[in-house]
């Protein structure tokens, strides 16, 4: 309470109109308070429903409930793109508050986390693990696990490369069958 009366005293002292003007000033100030931190709004933005916030405060509110983005005052739908920055005259550099940290709503979101593959295997980019018996052409028997390895994708259907791949895979299949038969009957 002591602080309040001090604040009041200084407000009325600075107001040219004396005591009568002091109350009005105070009322005006309250009009410009952020609805979240209750302080005078800095980097002010206003929602479509007309409610005033500090951009950092509103940003944190939106981050807290990504699935339920509503106005903290009236619970109207709200989003980072649909707030308007306010520029007063006193401020010399008029930069969009949303461009500062925390980042401006549009276009500066952090990228979604890259898929880091198997959390258990932290061996860098491409980690191969092979089990198997046999040597070269019988490599078809090995089961190969590739984690996070950018394997060349299959060639598009219809191209010459596609035909070639199909042909090769058929040959390997036959070789494999012959090998199995040889193992069984030999």
């Amino acid at each position: 309470m002591a602080e309040t009366s001090e604040a009041q005293a200084s407000a009325s002292a600075s107001a040219p109109g004396g005591d009568a003007g002091g109350d009005d000033d105070k009322h005006d100030e309250r009009m410009l308070e952020c609805n979240i931190c209750l302080d005078t709004a800095r980097d002010a933005v206003v929602s479509m429903c007309g409610h005033l916030f500090c951009w950092p405060c509103l940003h944190q509110w939106l981050e807290t409930r990504p699935s339920r983005q509503v106005c903290p005052v009236c619970k109207a739908a709200i989003s980072r793109d649909k707030v308007i920055p306010l520029y007063g005259r006193g401020n010399t550099k008029q930069e969009d508050p949303r461009n500062k940290v925390p980042p401006r709503p549009a276009g500066q979101r952090t990228e979604p986390e890259s898929n880091s593959g198997f959390p258990g295997f932290g061996f860098g980019e491409g980690f191969h693990m092979s089990f198997g018996i046999g040597a070269f052409p019988f490599g078809v028997f090995t089961s190969t696990f590739n984690f996070g390895d950018p394997r060349p994708s299959a060639a598009p259907r219809g191209t010459a490369q596609y035909e070639e791949e199909q042909f090769l895979s058929k040959i390997f299949l036959w070789v494999a069958i012959v090998f199995v038969l040889w193992l069984v009957f030999a």
Partner: peptide, 9 residues
């Protein structure tokens, strides 16, 4: 609970 809003005091 879920209907909390930051402007509530």
């Amino acid at each position: 609970k879920d209907q909390w809003a930051a402007a509530l005091t």
